[in-house]
């Protein structure tokens, strides 16, 4: 059986059932870019932002972690996140990608490519409520 570290969420395991904003159910490995875009269009609170990977470094805390620096949205705000190296991000037009795709596939059985500088990931921000 697959052993998932406690800080790696269960919904990334292959076969997990994901509900889109219109109620449709899909497996996590079958999600497409359009699924996220259409779900965000339906959402009253959330919108999709583009987050471009600017830098990927090993963590000072633990070799199991990486620090990924993103440039977020049209304002290019700099945001760094510390994640397990197998943590998957969804890259526009490409799909699931992580710092260590071999580990992602090993632990989660989730098909995954290598996350690289310049990749544009899907992220969420709050819609402007006016």
């Amino acid at each position: 059986s697959t052993v998932v570290p406690p800080s790696l969420p269960p919904y990334f395991i292959k076969g997990s059932i994901i509900q889109l904003a219109d109620g449709e159910l899909k497996r996590v490995e079958d999600l497409k870019t359009e699924d996220f875009i259409q779900s965000a269009e339906i959402s009253s609170e959330l919108k999709i932002d583009s987050s471009t990977v600017e830098r990927i470094e090993g963590s000072h805390t633990s070799p199991n972690f990486a620090v990924v620096q993103f440039s977020v949205g049209e304002h290019r705000a700099q945001v760094s996140v510390e994640v397990l190296v197998e943590y998957p991000f969804f890259v526009f037009g490409q799909g699931w990608s992580s710092c260590c795709p071999d580990r992602t596939t090993q632990l989660l059985e989730l098909p995954c490519t290598k996350l690289s500088v310049g990749d544009v990931c899907i992220s969420l921000t709050l819609k402007n409520l006016r």
Partner: peptide
């Protein structure tokens, strides 16, 4: 079988707006 909402899969990155 648990069902997870789509937005739980996406990191929430709120940019700080400086304008």
């Amino acid at each position: 079988v648990p069902v997870f909402p789509w937005h739980s899969l996406v990191p929430f990155l709120a940019p700080t707006q400086s304008d």
